[in-house]
Design a protein around this nucleic acid. Structure first.
Lengths: 209, 209
DNA sequence: GCAATACGTTAACAAAGGATAAGAAAAAAT
DNA sequence: ATTTTTTCTTATCCTTTGTTAACGTATTGC
C-alpha cells in the first residue's frame, strides 16, 4: 500500500472542492486512509462479478466501464484524469458489480476503501462533511444519468454521435471507435456507416456553397 | 396550502424509513413544512421549461415523466403510490427541467419545497439527518439509472419488454401501451409488433409441447 | 524487423424499427 | 345510449441497424 505524495494529494483535494470543502483537520484524517494504485493498460480495476470495494481518483490515465454480455464487452463509459470513479451501485449496495472497469492506458489512481469511508462516516469529526460529500457526488451522477437516458430516448445514434463531436470532442481522440460505438448504443460497423454518412453530407454542403 | 392529515403523514413517514429514521422531534419539524397537493388526470406537476421547486410523495394515483421533442411527448418513467418523486436534476441544480411530469390518474401528493429542504439542511436539529436522507435518495436513484442504462446498451427492445413483464408486471396494467413503448425506447407501433412476435412464439411453443 | 493482433472500413444480406395511414376496439364525454 | 376521442393493431414502404466476412492499415509484442 503506497501512500500518495503531497503533490498528488493536492491534486486530489483541488478537484474535490467541486463537491465539498474539507477543513485541514478533516483532510488529514481522510488523507491518512488514501493509497496509490497503479493499473497497467487492459488491467481490471473491478471485475464484473465481484463487489467493488474502492473508489478511485484518476491522477493520470483513463479508464473504461463496460458490461459483458454473452462474452462480448460493451463499453458504457469513460473516465479521464482528475475524475472520481467507482462501480457505484456495487460499492454502495455491496452487491456484485454488473460493470467491469479496466484501464485504456497505464493509469495511476488515489483510492479509498468502503471500510475507510464507513470509518469517516462514523467519526464525528468527519461524518457531516462525508455525508454531504456523498450526497454531492450522488447528485452529480444523477444529473449525468438523466442526460444519458434522455439521449437514448430522444435521439438517434447519429444524433448522439454528432452531439458527442460538439460536446465531448476529447472523447474522439482518446477512445477507440468500437468502444465509442457501444457507448452510443450501436455496433462498431454501424458507427462506421454513420461517420460515412456525416462525411458525405458535409462534402455535399461544401459543394453547394 | 392544505396540511396533510395525521394518517397521511404516517403513510409518508412509514415509507421514508427505507431511507432514514427521523426522531419524533425531527419529524415534527419536517411535518410542519409539508403540504398537500392534488393533481387531476393530465394536469402537470412540472412543466419541461420551468425550475422544479418541489419533491412529492404519492399518497395515491400515478404520475408520468416525459420529455418533449419536436412537440412530441416521449414517456420516460412512471411513479405510483408510496413513491417519492421530483424532477431531481432541476430541483437540485435549480435549472429548468428537461422533464415534464403529469398525472396519469387523479393523484394526491404530500410535497415539500426546495426552500423548506434548505431550511432543514441549515437547522442543526435536522441537518445531519437530512444530508443522510438526501444521500440515500440520490444513491437509490443512481442504482435505478445504472440498471436503466445497462438495459439500453445490452438489450434489444424485445428483451427489455420481456424483462418488464417479469419484473414489473404492475406496469403493464396501469400504463397505456404507447407510454410504455417510449419507456422502452421504441414507437407504439413497434411495441405492438413486438407483442405480436412474442404471442406467436408462445403459441408455437404450446403447439410443440 | 517481422509476425501477430487490433482497429477501422466496406459489402451483402437479413432483421428490425420508423413513418404513415387505415381500421378495430376500448374508454371517455356528452 | 351514442358520439367522440383515445388506444391498439395491422399493413405498406423505406431507412437503419445487426451480422458476418473480407480487406487494408496501424499497433504491439517478440
Amino acid at each position: 500500500m503506497q501512500s500518495p505524495t503531497a503533490l498528488q494529494l493536492r491534486q486530489f483535494r483541488a478537484q474535490l472542492t467541486k463537491f465539498v470543502e474539507f477543513s485541514d483537520e478533516q483532510w488529514d484524517l481522510i488523507a491518512s486512509l488514501l493509497y496509490l494504485k497503479s493499473i497497467k493498460k487492459k488491467e481490471l480495476f473491478v471485475s464484473g462479478d465481484k463487489v467493488c470495494n474502492e473508489v478511485g481518483f484518476i491522477l493520470q490515465g483513463s479508464l473504461r466501464f463496460f458490461f459483458v454480455k454473452d462474452g462480448i464487452e460493451l463499453s458504457n463509459y469513460f473516465c479521464f484524469q482528475n475524475e472520481l470513479m467507482s462501480s457505484y451501485r456495487s460499492f454502495l449496495k455491496r452487491t456484485p458489480s454488473i460493470i467491469s472497469i479496466d484501464a485504456m492506458e497505464d493509469s495511476q489512481l488515489i483510492c479509498f476503501t468502503y471500510d475507510s469511508l464507513q470509518q469517516l462516516l462514523a467519526d464525528e469529526r468527519t461524518s457531516f462533511a462525508m455525508e454531504h460529500f456523498g450526497r454531492m457526488i450522488a447528485e452529480y451522477l444523477i444529473c449525468c444519468y438523466e442526460e444519458r437516458v434522455f439521449s437514448f430516448l430522444t435521439q438517434t445514434p447519429e444524433e448522439r454521435y454528432k452531439r458527442l463531436i460538439d460536446e465531448q470532442p476529447h472523447f474522439l481522440n482518446r477512445i477507440p471507435q468500437h468502444y465509442l460505438a457501444n457507448y452510443l448504443g450501436v455496433t462498431a460497423v454501424s458507427l462506421s456507416r454513420i461517420r460515412k454518412r456525416i462525411h458525405e453530407s458535409r462534402s455535399k454542403q461544401k459543394l453547394a456553397s
